[in-house]
């Protein structure tokens, strides 16, 4: 290869870089933004849900619930728990002492707050931290275990709350797509609407 051959590649190098840069980082994302903001305005801006006119969160992002009157989500390793500006999992391995200690502690707390027996077996999602730390869902089983506590705190019957849980249980689509789940924030908003605190 001669030096002349190399300098011949200089103009394509700069030209292709500039044109590809324009197409992929200006035209393309702006086109996507345009379509997104026009056709899917709510989704493109974070699927924000409002109560009484003020935003209370995103239906896609889990949040921290600790009171007896609400359903609780899964343990979260994002920041101090459901910190949506610091997503992440625990990254603890299966033989980690820290993991087993944490699960043991969370399991005891879960059993106590829901008045379960001391050695009651718990659903696997109830005491494990999700990958994002922002999982908005729990399994239907984990939601059902909390029905008694929530009904008691809101002074309504367990059946009333259980019906609401069933209503908010999403199944698989087309038999195979996704897993059965309950969106905790949506369920809690519905609770506040239907069974306001006494």
């Amino acid at each position: 290869m001669t030096a002349k051959a190399l300098t011949q590649e200089l103009r394509p190098l700069l030209g292709i870089t500039v044109t590809m840069l324009l197409l992929t980082t200006a035209v393309y994302p702006l086109a996507v933004t345009g379509v997104a903001q026009t056709l899917f305005h709510r989704q493109a801006n974070g699927s924000i849900v409002e109560v009484n006119g003020s935003p209370v969160g995103s239906t896609l992002i889990g949040q921290m619930f600790e009171g007896d009157q609400y359903f609780h989500g899964r343990p979260s390793a994002a920041g101090d728990g459901y910190d949506a500006s610091a997503s992440g999992g625990s990254n603890l391995g299966p033989t980690s002492q820290k993991l087993i200690d944490r699960v043991t502690e969370d399991a005891a707390a879960f059993r106590q707050s829901n008045s379960l027996e001391a050695h009651a077996t718990l659903p696997s999602d109830a005491v494990t931290a999700s990958g994002s730390g922002l999982d908005p869902h729990v399994s239907p089983a984990t939601a059902r275990l909390q029905v008694e506590r929530v009904a008691h705190a809101r002074r309504v019957t367990e059946d009333q709350v259980r019906e609401l849980v069933d209503e908010f249980t999403e199944g698989r689509q087309l038999v195979l797509i996704g897993e059965p789940r309950v969106n905790v924030l949506k369920l809690n908003i519905a609770l506040d609407e239907r069974f306001p605190l006494p």
Partner: peptide, 9 residues
Amino acid sequence: NMEGKEQRF
């Protein structure tokens, strides 16, 4: 083993 996994997946 649901540690580190999302319920919807």
